[in-house]
Each structure stands twice: as structure tokens, then as C-alpha cells.
Amino acid sequence: MIDEPFAIGESPLHRRDPRVKIITAITLTVLVALTDSFVVAAGAGVLALLLVLVAGLPILPVLRHLLAVNVFTLFLWLTLPLTYGGETTHLHGLALSVSGIRLAALITLKSNTIALALTALLSTSTIASLGHGLEGIGIPPRLCFILLTTYRYLFVIHQEYQRLHRAAVMRGFVARTNLHTYKTLSHLFAMTLVKSWNRAQRVHQAMLLRGFTGKLFLLRQPLLIPADYLFLASCLAACGGLATLGLC
């Protein structure tokens, strides 16, 4: 359930430095999130599709990723045309708001564009390298430390919960809508919290023994190569072009 299906690969995007990809992702997100124009959003959509193609990602898993985004847009499609007001058009006796439909369409385009761009740019790095990349672009080291450690222990703690849950199921526990279920699941999670708490103490002590002072060091400090600069420059130029398109 928690995995990084796109992180490993040999495409030109996989080989770019995470810092470059993070900056591109932020620029593109800001541009698309703030625009009101279909033209800019569609242009960014083409750019995002291009990035996905360059990254050589498998189509089906990418579409499955997009599904999560569209749960929220579906909610907007179900409510906005009926509730937005303004000029209406009639379809099978339903009064649908034109501007509501327009807004829902724009939001759908924007959300999917950003999700595609983030998949191409960020999912092609491991979260560990993104964490160090974030530190490289000036995010506070403590926050990056929390991010990296949270990520590191996510799987361990998830497995611990699953182990407790399996043990409960083997003793005949069936989840239903009743108080017993709610109590049992609460206790399973509370036990997971206790285990995480104690594990945190042990890991901290073990790290102190190894001379931990609050900073994580990278064994190999990656250097930006010309291809990284070229990629960053062309992406920023494309974003700049789209932004001027939106202004005129």
C-alpha cells in the first residue's frame, strides 16, 4: 500500500538532481494553482504530460494515482453545477449552472496537471533523496530530519500495527459497526503508539552512542551537473512563457 513504484529508473528525469526537480515542481505548482486561464492550465498540462513521457512511467499506475486526485474533483462535479448559481442551462429538467460547470472543469484540469507534474518530477526520486534535497534548498534541517525519520520508521510501525491486527483476527476479531470494534481498534492503535514511543527512546539512545548531534551527513554529496542546470533552465523558461501567456 505504501510504496514508491516510480522511484527507480534510468530515464533522464530519474537522473536529475532532486533539488532541481523540487524547484521545478514548486514553480509549476504555483503557476498552475494560481491561474484562472484554461490556456495556461492546458499548456502546463501538455508540459506535465511531456515530463511523464520523458520519465517513461507506466501508464496504468499513473492513471491509478490520478484516481485519488479525482475523488475530490468528482465531489465538485456533483455539487458545483447544482449549487453555483448564475446563468443556467437545462439538461433533462435539471438546471445546471454554466459557471459552476466551467469552474469544475478548470479545477479538474488544474488538479490533474499538478498531480501529473508531481508524479513525473517527485515520484521519480526516492523520498530519502527528496528529504536531503529539501535540506539542500533551505528547508530547516530539523524538519528534514523529522521527514526522513518519519519515512524511515513508517514501514516498521505499519508492520507493528498489522502484527497486532493479525493477532486480533486470529483470536476471532471481526470488524463491525459496534462499540467492541471501536474499542479494539483503539487499543490496537494505542499499543502501536506505546511501541513507537519506546522504539523512539531506543533509537535515540543508539544514535547517541554513535555520536549523533542532530545532523545527518550524506556519504556522497551530489553535485549539480550541466544537464541539471539545462533541465532547470528549460523548465523555468517554459513556466515563464506560460505565465506571460496568462498575463496578456
Binding site: L185, R199, A200, H204, T213
Partner: peptide
């Protein structure tokens, strides 16, 4: 958060991430 508590905050954050994966039956 002081230095001693960073690890605890991180592990509790993982635990709360795990909580969001727990599904509670409702009807």
C-alpha cells in the same frame, strides 16, 4: 522540540500516518 525529543516527534508522526491507514467500519 529539543534535540532529545526529535526522534519521538518523528516516530509519533509515523504512527499518526499509520492511523490514517486504519479503516473504521461505519455501516
Amino acid at each position: 522540540v529539543n534535540h532529545e525529543r526529535l526522534m519521538t516527534v518523528a516516530l509519533l508522526a509515523s504512527a499518526f500516518f499509520v492511523a490514517s491507514l486504519i479503516h473504521i467500519p461505519l455501516g
